[in-house]
């Protein structure tokens, strides 16, 4: 029964804030194109691990924070992150059963879709990447997924987050 009472939930918030930090940290120019979707990655892990603690509203709020940080239209990243959350939650039961490699492929689809919506929104506001590079962050994120999930699982077990 103790599984339902919240324990050490602050770890989730701290890790999400860390993801927010990573998403604006300076990177060399050539890596800037493939900046991983840190917020989406971290959010996905917590959604899969503890769907009773984080949900769409959490994702939306963090998306708004990302908008303020990036100077994007208020609601742009919020919409994207909500969409990712929706997809992950609806695939939730299957995703948990998949091995890591298969999870990567599914997440590539999810993040790719999110990037596509991001591209549309960017095109509406006027700055549009000229080529297919908009898909690069999704690929990088999918490749990073095993490591991110391993680290976060270690964190979760270390602090007994529930």
């Amino acid at each position: 029964m103790s599984a339902t009472s919240p324990r050490n939930v602050w770890v989730i918030w701290v890790s999400m804030l860390f993801a927010l930090l990573l998403s604006v940290s300076p990177l060399p120019d050539f890596m800037e194109m493939g900046r991983p979707l840190w917020l989406a990655l971290f959010m996905t892990y917590w959604l899969l691990a503890l769907p009773q603690r984080v949900g769409m509203l959490t994702a939306w709020c963090f998306g708004l924070l990302a908008d303020v940080l990036n100077g994007a239209l208020l609601g742009q990243n919020a919409l994207i992150l909500t969409l990712v959350t929706f997809l992950v939650l609806s695939l939730h039961q299957r995703l948990r059963m998949f091995p890591l490699s298969q999870q990567c492929i599914v997440l590539l689809m999810v993040f790719g879709l999110a990037q596509l919506v991001q591209l549309w929104l960017n095109a509406l506001t006027g700055n549009r990447p000229p080529t297919l590079v908009f898909i690069l962050p999704a690929v990088v994120s999918a490749l990073l997924w095993p490591w991110v999930s391993m680290i976060l699982r270690w964190l979760q077990q270390r602090f007994g987050v529930n």
């Binding site: 949900g55 769409m56 509203l57 939306w60 998306g63 239209l73 208020l74 609601g75 742009q76 919020a78 919409l79 909500t82 969409l83 929706f86 939650l89 609806s90 929104l121 506001t125």
Partner: peptide
């Protein structure tokens, strides 16, 4: 349900974006 929540939040986001882009009061 999930779909309803997505719909509500998506509409909210779009509304925020439109207001942010077109009006000054935000």
């Amino acid at each position: 349900s999930l779909g309803v929540r997505l719909l509500v939040l998506a509409v909210l986001s779009v509304a925020l974006m439109v207001v942010d882009a077109r009006f000054a009061f935000l």
